[in-house]
Design a protein around this nucleic acid. Sequence first.
DNA 1: CGTGTTTGACCTGCGC
DNA 2: GCGCAGGTCAAACACG
Length: 355
Amino acid sequence: MERKSKQVDKVMLNMPVVFTEKEKQLESTRIEMGEMKEENKRLKMFLAEISKDYQSLKMHFLDAKRQIENDVEEAELVSLSLGSCLAKHNYKEEKNIANKKRKQEENQIKDTLSLGLEVVEEETWPPCKSMKSLKNGNGEVSQQANPSKDRVSVRARCDAPTMNDGCQWRKYGQKVAKGNPCPKAYYRCSVAAGCPVKKQVQRCAEDMSILITTYEGRHNHPIPKQSYQLNPSQISSNPSNPSIKNSDQMITDSIAQAITTDPSFQSALATAIASCIRVHGVQGTRESSSGSYGHGHGGVLQERNSNECSSSYLAMSDSVMTSSHYQENLKIFQPLMCSSGAENASSTPVDDGEQ
DNA sequence: CGTGTTTGACCTGCGC
DNA sequence: GCGCAGGTCAAACACG
């Protein structure tokens, strides 16, 4: 018992020493914890800042990405400009105005037109300064009534030197214009002798991949039929057969797909629409088309420029359409012009081969 | 040989 | 009137 108490005393004696060491450890641990808490706090703040920066950068990145996407989208627009020289104007002044107008409309169209087409009414064609007498096919000299009255400009991404628009063109000149290192090529329609239509092809100075094709005048002959033919099964509407889609929807789908995937189709479409609009704006006393094309030219009328920007998908059977043709063609494109999509497509019957 | 392209010269309109 | 720029002509050349 005595022995036991001695041991307890020893323990009791030793206790304070043990507690102080533990307390010291505890104290140091507390200090460490406090420091770690401080560090943790700092790290949290640091993390918050990093997170904030990250969010900010993310926003910037998304904005930049969106901007780039918009730019690409804009660059891939098929730009289509119409013009006429009905009166004498100050060309340069109007050109500036038209450029501003075009940019404004490009922005508007970006927001409103899902089709990706730009149709700009433009009155910037320089006054028909040279009403030169042009030799017709018979070698006679005939005064052109208004050879450069109509002018249509088509902008499209195209790596090839020219766009295939279904016509046969003969190059008659090339010139390096001021302000653009890319030479401008001058073509004349060689489908029919005496056809007053000309086109100018030039690459955009800002973006070499953009080909600016400017058409001038009206064809005095049918435009050759080309490769873009819709499948007849798609054309023929068959409501009794549920497996076959509504023809308009099929057409719409086909055209929509072509539009969204093929830049050359965009350019061809632009040309075609321009043709529609041009025809619509002209009094209707036109000869109906004979429909025959490609005779008597020794095969010259076939497309030769295989390096042209793909084939012309959309070929009007006749460049000199009647207004009813125009209406028909316009009806086809109406669903596409509207952002509402194919569901609202009108049920306009489309004849076989008519597009 | 026929047809299309190239390219330097020429023409025309416009601004100064 | 002059110079400049855009558009056109036409001879030379290339190609199939």
